[in-house]
C-alpha cells in the first residue's frame, strides 16, 4: 500500500524554475513530467536535483503506455528507474491509457475499452513496470472523448480491479472526471461516488476548454467552478491526499497558481481537513 501524503503542490514548469530555487515557495511538493527529465544530463537534470533538495517531488509520466497490447517499453522503464533512484520521489504516476502500438507512438493519452482483456493487459503491464521500478505507482483516470461499445465495466470498476490486482494506487484527476462526464453525458457526482476512495493518494485539479463539440482537457486555464464543486464533494470521502494544480499551457505568474492552491487549502479547511 502506497503511504499517504497530505499536502498541496504545483506542477514545476520552466517559467518558474528560478522562483522555486531562489525562494521558499509555499508548496508541500512539486510534480514534474518524468519524460522531461529522462535525459542524459545538462541543465534539466541539475535543476531537478536542486529542486529536490528543497521540495518533495512527484514524478508524473505520460509515455509509459500501460494499456498497450504490445507491452511496456523496457528501455523506457530503465530510464525511469534511474530517475526514480536519483530523485526518490513522493509518487510515481502515469495514466490509464495507451500511447504506442506496433512501433507507432501517438504521444497522446488514447482511450482503452473497459474489457476483461484490457484489464488483464493493463495489470500485466503495471506489474512489470512496478517490478522494474521497485515500487508501486499511482494510475490516473484520463479525460476521454470516445467510449467503446464493448465496454464491460465502468472506468472506476476497471481501476479498482487494477489496484486490487497490482497494488497500485490512484491519482484522481477531478477535472478529467468532469470533462469525461460532460462529453459522455453522465453525472459527474455519481461518477465520483464510484471512485474506490481508499485507493486515492493524489488529486489533480486543472482547467479545461469548450471545444466545438466537446470539452477538451487543455490545462491552459484556471480550475473551473464546477471542478471546485466536485473537489469539495469528494474530499470528505477520502483519506489524506496530496492535491495539486496542473497547468501545462498559458502558464501564468507563480502567484496566480499559488492563489489557486490557496483555494484548495481553503476548501480543505472548510471540510474540516488539514490545510497544510
Amino acid at each position: 500500500m502506497i503511504p499517504s501524503f497530505a499536502g498541496f503542490g504545483l506542477g514545476l514548469r520552466k517559467q518558474h524554475y528560478a522562483e522555486f530555487l531562489e525562494h521558499r515557495v509555499a508548496v508541500d511538493f512539486v510534480e514534474v513530467i518524468s519524460e522531461n527529465f529522462m535525459v542524459d544530463g545538462g541543465r534539466p537534470r541539475r535543476i531537478l536535483r536542486e529542486v529536490r533538495e528543497r521540495y518533495p517531488v512527484a514524478l508524473h509520466g505520460v509515455s509509459m503506455s500501460v494499456g498497450s497490447a504490445d507491452g511496456v517499453d523496457r528501455a523506457y522503464l530503465v530510464r525511469l528507474r534511474a530517475l526514480v533512484e536519483e530523485i526518490e520521489p513522493l509518487f510515481v504516476s502515469d495514466h490509464l491509457c495507451w500511447t504506442q502500438s506496433g512501433g507507432f507512438n501517438s504521444h497522446d493519452l488514447l482511450p482503452l475499452p473497459y474489457t476483461q482483456e484490457a484489464l488483464d493487459i493493463v495489470c500485466a503491464n503495471i506489474s512489470i513496470a512496478q517490478d522494474a521500478l521497485g515500487r508501486e505507482m499511482l494510475i490516473e483516470n484520463p479525460s476521454s472523448y470516445i467510449s467503446f461499445e464493448n465496454d464491460m465495466m465502468s472506468e472506476w470498476a476497471f481501476l479498482d480491479a487494477v489496484c486490487a490486482r497490482t497494488g497500485c494506487g490512484l491519482l484522481l484527476d477531478v477535472n478529467n472526471v468532469f470533462v469525461s462526464a460532460t462529453n459522455h453525458g453522465f453525472d459527474p457526482v455519481a461518477n465520483l461516488d464510484g471512485v474506490p476512495h481508499e485507493r486515492v493518494r493524489q488529486i489533480h485539479l486543472a482547467g479545461h476548454a469548450q471545444g466545438e463539440t466537446m470539452l477538451i482537457d487543455t490545462h491552459d486555464s484556471p480550475v473551473a467552478a464546477s471542478v471546485w464543486d466536485l473537489y469539495r464533494h469528494i474530499l470528505p470521502r477520502l483519506g489524506p491526499v496530496a492535491t495539486m494544480i496542473e497547468r501545462d499551457d498559458a502558464i501564468p505568474p507563480l502567484h496566480e497558481l499559488l492563489a489557486e492552491l490557496g483555494q484548495a487549502r481553503a476548501i480543505n479547511a472548510q471540510t474540516g481537513r488539514l490545510a497544510a
Binding site: 494499456g67 498497450s68 497490447a69 504490445d70 495507451w98 502500438s101 506496433g102 507507432f104 501517438s106 488514447l110 482503452l112 475499452p113 474489457t115 482483456e117 484490457a118 493487459i121 467503446f148 464493448n150
Partner: peptide, 12 residues
C-alpha cells in the same frame, strides 16, 4: 475486436 487490433486500427 481484440485490443491489439483496436490499437493498430486506431493508430492507422
Amino acid at each position: 475486436m481484440n485490443l491489439a487490433r483496436l490499437q493498430r486500427e486506431f493508430s492507422t
